[in-house]
Design a protein around this nucleic acid. Structure first.
Length: 647
RNA sequence: GCCGACAUAGCUCAGGGGUAGAGCAACUGAUUCGUAAUCAGUAGGUCCUCGGUUCAAUUCCGAGUGUCGGCACCA
C-alpha cells in the first residue's frame, strides 16, 4: 500500500506496487509524456521501477539537470549497439557520460576513423527511430559471466568478475541488444533525441592502466535539443580561436621548433608579457617577506640521490657529461634540494623561521613526448618556486598566508575562481606512515584555519608529502594545476637540514614547497586564453600604437610616442603609408588595447584621439591629460594599491 | 611512452607518379587618405628527414622526427 509523496507535498496512495510510469499517468497525460525517469527517495531510477513501499518521488523531465547525464549515457548505449551491428566482432567495454558528452571504449583489431562516423551516426538514428524500450533485468552473476563469455565479450565478463559480491548484476535491453549496466536509463532509445554528434576517436588503456591493452574510444557530445548542440559546437569554435598556440603565433609571442621540442622561443612581445608577470610576482613576494635566490642549473647526481629524486625520476632527468669530468651532472628538475643547500650553509636559528626562500627557477624535465602541449606542458620551464622553512606549529599560519597571497595574485590576473584539490599520500612514497599522518593532519588543519574548501584527490600527493593543488581551466576546458603547496617532513631529513631551537637543541625544520603560478609557461598559456589575447593594459606587450593619418603628422606621432615611453608605456608608432582604416584593423586584430590616432588636427592642437580595443568611440584628449591618464591606467594592480592605501 | 591523424610559401590551405598553386602577409611603385582591408606590380618552395619501389617520387611503401586529438605520466 505505498503512499507516494510528490514534490508539492501532496500524497497519493496506491493499492499495490506501482511503477513510476503509472504514478505519472495518474497525475496527468502531460507528465506521463514528459517524465523520463524519477528520483525515488533522492535516488535516480528508471521510470519503470516498481515502488512497493512509501516513498517520495520527483519526476525527471528533459529540462531537469539530471536529464542531460541520462541523455548522454543513453546515447553511449545507442552508439555501442550501432557499432556492434556495423562491425561484428567488436567488443564493448564501458561507456559513461562525461562533461558535455559521452564516450564508449571498444575493443577491435582495426581502429575506427572519423570516416566511419557518418555510417555509425546513421545507424544510431535508426536505433533511436525504433524507440526500443530500455528494459532492466537482474541477472545471476555466474550466468551473466557465462553469457558474455560465450559471446566473446571478455571485457564485460571481467567487469562482472571484479564487481563486489554484494553488487546486483543488472542488464539493460534495448530491442535485441543487451548490455551490462548499472543504469538508470530513460524510457527508450527514442528519448535520446537527435541532438548528438560523434566527435573524435582516441586510444585509451583498458581500465586506465598503461599495462593493459589499448582500446579505441569514440567521443561524442549530446544535448537536449539542436539549439543546445549548436551552441556547444559554436562554443568549441570560439575556444579554438582563443587557443594560446594560435594566439601565440598570431600575436607573435613565441614559437616552438623541432630542434628544441618542449622548449619555448619567446619573441620580444611574448617576453614582455613574461617579464610583466615576473616583475609582478617578484614585487608581491618581496612584499610578503620572501627572500630571492638563484641556484645552479647543473648539479651532481649525488645530490639527487640524497634527495631521492634520482631513484624515482632518473629517467625524466636530463643528464650532462663532459669528457674530462668523472661526475654525472643533471639539469635540475626542481629547486628544492638546492634551496636546502643554501639553508644548510651556516647555522640557522629558530629566530630566522619561517624562512621563505624564493627562486624563479629554470627547470628541465624529460616529459613523455605525448604529454607535450603548446607552452602548457613543456620540458624547459621556470617555476615561481619558493620553500618555506618553518617549525611544525608555523605550518597553519604559513599556509593561510600563502593561500591569501595566491588568491590575491590570481584575482589580479583576472581569475576570480579556482579549484583546490587536496592530494594525499601516494602508494609509492618516502617517509613512514606516522610522518604522513603528521603532514596530512597539519595540512588539513591549516586548510580549516585558512578557510580553504577543497575536494579530495586521493593518492596524488608528491612522494615526500601531501599537497594542495590550485587548478585553473584553459579555453578548451582542460584543467591545469598551477599553484601548489606541499608539506614536506622528508626532504629536510634526507638532506639534513636543521636549526637551533630556543632550548639550544638541534631541530629539523619543515619545508613547505609552494608555487603560485606554477610555471610561467603554463600560467601565461592559460592567461593568454583567459583574455583571448586582449590583455589588460598592465600586461599588454604593446600598450599603445600611435597611428598617423598623414605624413605631415609623423613628427608629432614620434613625439607622442616618446612622451608615452618616457612614462613607461610600451609604444609602437605606425607611420606606414596606409589608410587609417587599415592601421586600425591590423592593430585591433593584434589586440592592441589602445590606438592613438594623430592627424593634422591633433598635431596642431597637441591632442591625441584615443580608440580603445573593442569600441568605436574615440576620446580626444590633450597630450598631457592622455599621458597622466594612461600612465595611471597602465600601472600593475599591486602598485595601484600601494599608491592608494585606502583601496 | 601507447593508439590514431597530420606535415606543401611567413600564415591559412588547394593539388597530384613527369621537380607545384591560391588568398593573406612581404617587397617595389603610385596614392596623403579621419577610425576594422587603396590600387598596381614583383619576388617567394630541399613539398619535414632518411631509405625503398620506379625510367621518373613532393605524390606510392617503410623508418625516423615533430605537431595535433586522446590515454598513460606530471617531483
Amino acid at each position: 500500500m505505498p503512499a507516494i509523496t510528490l514534490p508539492d507535498g501532496s500524497v497519493r496512495r496506491f493499492d499495490g506496487p506501482v511503477t513510476g510510469t503509472e504514478v505519472a499517468a495518474s497525475i496527468g497525460p502531460g507528465l506521463a509524456r514528459a517524465a523520463l525517469a524519477m528520483k525515488l527517495d533522492g535516488q535516480l531510477v528508471d521510470l519503470s521501477r516498481s515502488i512497493e513501499d512509501d516513498a517520495a518521488i520527483v519526476f525527471v523531465t528533459r529540462k531537469d539537470p539530471d536529464a542531460l547525464g541520462m541523455i548522454r549515457h543513453d546515447t553511449a548505449h545507442v552508439l555501442a549497439e550501432a557499432v556492434q551491428s556495423l562491425y561484428p566482432g567488436t567488443q564493448v567495454t564501458i561507456g559513461p557520460s562525461i562533461e558535455n558528452g559521452f564516450y564508449y571504449d571498444f575493443a577491435r583489431n582495426e581502429p575506427f576513423t572519423p570516416e566511419d562516423f557518418p555510417a555509425i551516426e546513421a545507424r544510431m538514428r535508426e536505433i533511436i527511430g525504433r524507440n526500443a524500450a530500455f528494459e532492466r533485468e537482474v541477472w545471476d552473476r555466474d550466468e551473466a559471466i557465462a553469457f558474455f563469455e560465450t559471446k566473446g565479450e571478455r571485457y564485460k565478463a571481467e567487469l562482472i568478475r571484479d564487481l563486489p559480491g554484494t553488487e546486483t548484476i543488472t542488464m539493460y535491453k534495448q530491442g535485441d541488444w543487451i548490455d551490462l549496466c548499472r543504469g538508470p536509463h530513460m524510457r527508450g532509445t527514442g528519448d535520446v533525441g537527435t541532438a548528438f554528434k560523434l566527435q573524435k576517436v582516441a586510444g585509451a588503456y583498458w581500465r586506465g592502466d598503461h599495462r593493459n591493452p589499448m582500446l579505441t574510444r569514440i567521443y561524442g557530445t549530446a544535448w537536449r535539443d539542436q539549439k543546445e548542440l549548436d551552441a556547444y559546437l559554436q562554443q568549441l569554435e570560439e575556444a579554438e580561436r582563443r587557443d594560446h598556440r594560435r594566439l601565440g603565433r598570431e600575436m607573435d609571442l613565441f614559437h616552438i621548433q623541432e630542434e628544441a621540442a618542449g622548449s619555448i622561443f619567446w619573441h620580444p612581445k611574448g617576453w614582455k608579457l613574461y617579464r610583466a608577470a615576473e616583475s609582478y610576482v617578484r614585487r608581491r613576494q618581496d612584499a610578503a617577506g620572501y627572500v630571492e635566490v638563484k641556484t645552479p642549473q647543473l648539479v651532481d647526481r649525488v645530490l639527487w640521490e640524497r634527495s631521492g629524486h634520482w631513484d624515482k625520476y632518473r629517467e625524466h632527468m636530463f643528464v650532462a657529461h663532459v669528457e674530462d669530468e668523472k661526475r654525472t651532472l643533471a639539469l635540475k628538475p626542481m629547486n628544492c634540494p638546492c634551496h636546502v643547500q643554501i639553508f644548510n650553509h651556516g647555522l640557522r636559528s629558530y629566530r630566522e623561521l619561517p624562512l621563505r626562500m624564493a627562486e624563479f627557477g629554470a627547470c628541465h624535465r624529460y616529459e613523455p613526448s605525448g604529454a607535450l602541449h603548446g607552452i602548457m606542458r613543456v620540458r624547459g620551464f621556470t617555476q615561481d618556486d619558493a620553500h618555506i622553512f618553518c617549525t611544525p606549529d608555523q605550518i597553519a599560519d604559513e599556509t593561510a598566508k600563502f593561500v591569501d597571497l595566491l588568491s590575491s595574485v590570481y584575482r589580479d590576473f583576472g581569475f576570480d575562481s579556482f579549484r583546490v584539490k587536496f592530494a594525499d599520500r601516494p602508494d609509492e612514497r618516502a617517509g613512514d606512515d606516522a610522518t604522513w599522518d603528521r603532514a596530512e593532519g597539519a595540512l588539513r588543519e591549516a586548510c580549516a584555519m585558512a578557510g580553504v574548501e577543497y575536494e579530495l584527490n586521493p593518492g596524488e600527493g608528491a612522494f615526500y608529502g601531501p599537497k594542495l593543488e590550485f587548478v585553473l581551466r584553459d579555453a578548451i576546458g582542460r584543467d591545469w594545476q598551477c599553484g601548489t603547496l606541499q608539506v614536506d617532513f622528508v626532504l629536510p631529513d634526507r638532506l639534513d637540514a636543521s636549526y637551533i631551537a630556543d632550548d639550544s637543541s638541534r631541530q629539523r625544520p619543515v619545508m613547505l614547497h609552494r608555487a603560485i603560478l606554477g610555471s610561467f609557461e603554463r600560467f601565461l598559456g592559460i592567461l593568454i586564453e583567459q583574455y583571448a589575447g586582449r590583455f589588460p593594459l598592465w600586461l599588454a606587450p604593446v600598450q599603445l600604437v600611435v597611428a598617423s593619418i598623414v605624413t605631415d603628422a609623423e613628427p608629432y606621432a614620434e613625439e607622442v610616442a616618446e612622451a608615452f615611453r618616457a612614462r613607461g608605456l610600451s609604444v609602437v608608432v605606425d607611420g606606414r603609408n596606409e589608410k587609417i582604416n587599415a592601421k586600425i584593423r591590423e592593430h585591433s586584430l593584434q589586440h592592441v588595447p589602445i590606438i592613438a590616432v594623430v592627424g593634422r588636427k591633433e598635431a596642431e592642437g597637441r591632442t591625441v584621439a584615443l580608440r580603445r580595443l573593442g569600441g568605436q568611440a574615440q576620446e580626444v584628449l590633450s597630450l598631457a591629460e592622455a599621458l597622466d591618464g594612461l600612465a595611471l591606467e597602465a600601472m600593475p594592480p599591486d602598485i595601484v594599491r600601494s599608491a592608494t592605501p585606502n583601496r
